[in-house]
Amino acid sequence: MNIHKLITDIEKVDPEVYERLDSRRSAVSQFAKIGGKLALAAVPLALGGMFKKAYGQGNSTIVGVLNFALTLEYLEAEFYTRGAAAPALVPVGTPAVGAINTIRDHENQHVNFLKTAISSLGGTAVAKPTFDFTARGTFPTVFTNYDVFLAVAQTFEDTGVRAYKGQAGALISNNDVLTAALQIHSVEARHASHIRQMRQARNTGISIKPWITGKDTGGIGSNVQASYDGEEITTQAGVNILSFVSASAASESFDEPLSRSAVETIVAPFIV
């Protein structure tokens, strides 16, 4: 591979290739450092990453991802806003009130943040859909039965974590957007952990950990199985995690992504 020729060729169609690549210079100089066969094998991969960073996805792709995220945040924000306001749902005088309010506020902050980000990229934020939190009758008591409310909350949070994770690669060309998306992603994981602890504290006889074991729904059942399918894997980047820890720990120690289409299928019943 002749990198010099490659860059010169690109320059013929893009005179600004050097400026684009300039911010990636540490990656380029890395090639010179690594020697031998390993380097030869690594160069195409690393070059691919470098050009992806330099050219990457256009703003339209990024705006598309952010609008996808915004739809999920609209869903969560309205869910918690309505749940917090529903009479006799969240037990009055318990720490649950503060927790639900905290999560509600974060989801509304995410909505506003994403709207601002989209417009600053020159995009147009999608409008808030009309939601049906019974999921067309699957959860008819979602705002009257606290356990059902928490079960739906857990599903939204765990699904949200997987949704952001699945989009990280599509944001790799924009450092600021990627970082913000990661910052939202881990907040959703904090929420998921706490909602799971709230469900565990209900003492329903089902063991619910702050993390996802296998593809277990935590007793919610087949209605939400699609949000957990795929979480059970125990091999990461070709490394068998079962060599180090139990099957439970191996699946728990890595959360798995979901594709945009898988997430859209999961949330479709909640959107009118």
Binding site: K165, A189, S253
Partner: peptide, 13 residues
């Protein structure tokens, strides 16, 4: 990303 959300679950707990 697969690891950081697990760390965040730990942090919250």
């Amino acid at each position: 990303g697969k690891i950081v959300s697990v760390e965040a679950r730990h942090a919250a707990y």
